[in-house]
Design a binder for these strands. Sequence first.
DNA 1: ACGCACCCGATTTTT
DNA 2: TCGGGTGCGT
Length: 746
Amino acid sequence: MHTVQKLAEEKGWRIVPKTNVSLLKNLNSVQRQAVEKIDGPNLILAGAGSGKTRVLTHKIAFLIQRKKVNPENILAMTFTNKAANEMKDRVEALLDIPLKKMWIGTFHSLFARILRKNCEKLGYHSNFAIYDEADQIALIKNIITEKNLLSQAIDAKSLRSKIKFIKNANISPEHVKFSSASISDDIFYDIYYTYQNRLQQNNAMDFEDLLLRSIDLFKLFPNVLDYYQSKFHYILVDEYQDTNRLQYDLIKLLSQKHHNISVVGDDDQSIYRWRGADIKNILDFETDYPDCSIFRLEQNYRSTANILNIAHSIISHNRNRMEKELWTKKEPGEKVTFILTNDAIEEASAIIYKIEQEIQQNELNFSDFAVLYRTNAQSRAIEEVLKNRGINYVVVGGIRFYERKEIKDVLAYLRTLVNPNDGISIRRIINYPARGIGETTIKKIEQFSIDNNISLFKAIEKIEEIESISSRTKSSIQEFYGLIKKYLNLKLKGDVSITELVSTLIGELGILTFLKQEGSLESLNKIDNIRELLNGINDFIVRNPHLTLEHYLENVALITDVDNWDTRANAVSLLTLHSAKGLEFPVVFITGLEEGLFPLSRQMSTDEDLEEERRLFYVGATRAKEKLYLSSALNRRKFGENTSGTISRFLNEIDKTLIEIEETYQARHIHLSQHSHQPKRIFKFDHGDENEAIYKPGILVKHPTFGKGVVRTVAGDDANMVLNILFEEVGAKKIVLKYCKLEIVR
DNA sequence: ACGCACCCGATTTTT
DNA sequence: TCGGGTGCGT
């Protein structure tokens, strides 16, 4: 048997003996029980702020130190790289040894790793590319054009979501009916299968493939499955409530041999239903693993009692949940403050006023504040006021660095060098910078590659054989080919560093000089971004000298913004409720509490949707340690137009004794410093039910463009009523009542 | 093939 | 409001 001692001897590590007390002393009794129960299936229900990460890290440390489990035999899966790194760091700190061999990472990165090793069996090469959303859409668009389906006005984006949904659910496309689909099922299947084939031809996988192909691998090659099943004696899963069908299946497969599976999660924090997360996975854990032990972590160490009570009063409106209630030894603390404002700018000003007030009174830093919102677009008004006020801020998320055009362009070159079969990348760069190779020419080459069943790159190699292309165009294609070939060779020889390779390439392409000539603000920005990319590559190589360009690209593909968010800066954090998960701040603002925005209108029609919005609120509220503010703006610009809204139903669900209401900020131009601040009229929350429900299921209506139809369901209150109508001509549609002129026929 | 101008459309969340 | 996509003119 392997032991840490043996391993340490081999590696020359130093082992610091730790007493039993030191490892478990910082745990409360439930936490300790959860840590010590290592065998069999374990469900650890960890409420927000109840020490979830602490239990996970101590459990791993406990396994290694006390149960003498070899780190190689532990598999720990998280959703974000940040969580994975944090976990690793904390375990290393507990044990005081480096954990090089432990399998700890995100689902996607861990299975990518397994696939890199084994995918030849499935007909992929180990250097496969990972396609992000934009790449996937580009591929689908190509297929639509290629199949002459352009006339059908198919939306590549929604097609991608469908494909993603099907893959995440781990079902075949024939099993899904999209009632309101604009295209016929047959066409959809055709596109689906072509998409899948084309991915493989390009030696590429999308995010779902990383999991789906792993399942294929395990099913088709039992010996491979057996290898990993035997290897991983202990499996730990973080944020189990966010697992989707694929992840669920993989966990189940991998744990079959040893049955030692510990999952940690909180059903109340399941907020990724839209990307396939299935809350049933955690709710049904007991049935899936009948001999499991359950541990409930309900003591919260983060928030004041008032904050917890607010969070609980919202979440207890959900029916589909496991009953539990967080408690704390902390003081009730300050009441939660609700701020009602006229519009988004006022809302932002009020927030900033509060921030400055809090800083003065409680000696806080800007970094102690987080402003949370439902949609990224909301950050703009807040940013504007923060800028005016000269306050530093960081927007977490938003336009992602690696999705910027200039970055994707450069990366497409690198991806081509790693995997010349990647047709999507080649298509992207074949005429960037402009070489006089136009859309028609590209189509011809593509057709040639399909006809001869070769990759786009091979087709370019054989360009001479394509007769319909003019010789002038051919020569620029050959020039492009020569360029790629040259760098492929340079890379192959391996005597230049990656950083050198990339910067010479960019130099030869003349991208920076071209952008400099343009001289616009945007081009200068692009130059900065490309420079930053180069720095990033350099950093990566310096930090990981043994890793290659392939590794770098994988890292880029699987990274998120929260991962590289610099928390050291003394700045106010602006982020969506989703990206706030797992974080905490002394003071938190939840903004935009209006019907249609939070809860978001698209998520208001079914109970499941609404319950997820409620969980999102719960996540947001439980981020706050000391003080929570809620805010609404009665008027908000939407699509460039002013719309007036009503206060979120969530405010009605809150226990009013826990909240203090301020209705303020009438003036458009506020001088924050001289702002006198008096709570004024008491706001009435319940927005009555005048002219309630003339619209009921079964009523016949007429819509100006869709024609006649029958109302199927009615959701939302009277101000934001959403009707699901089955139209005679166009099928089922969701209609927001106030945006259309609906006539009642009968 | 490329650039410009205009128009339209969209705005949830992300590994 | 802003950005992308389309379509037209060169």
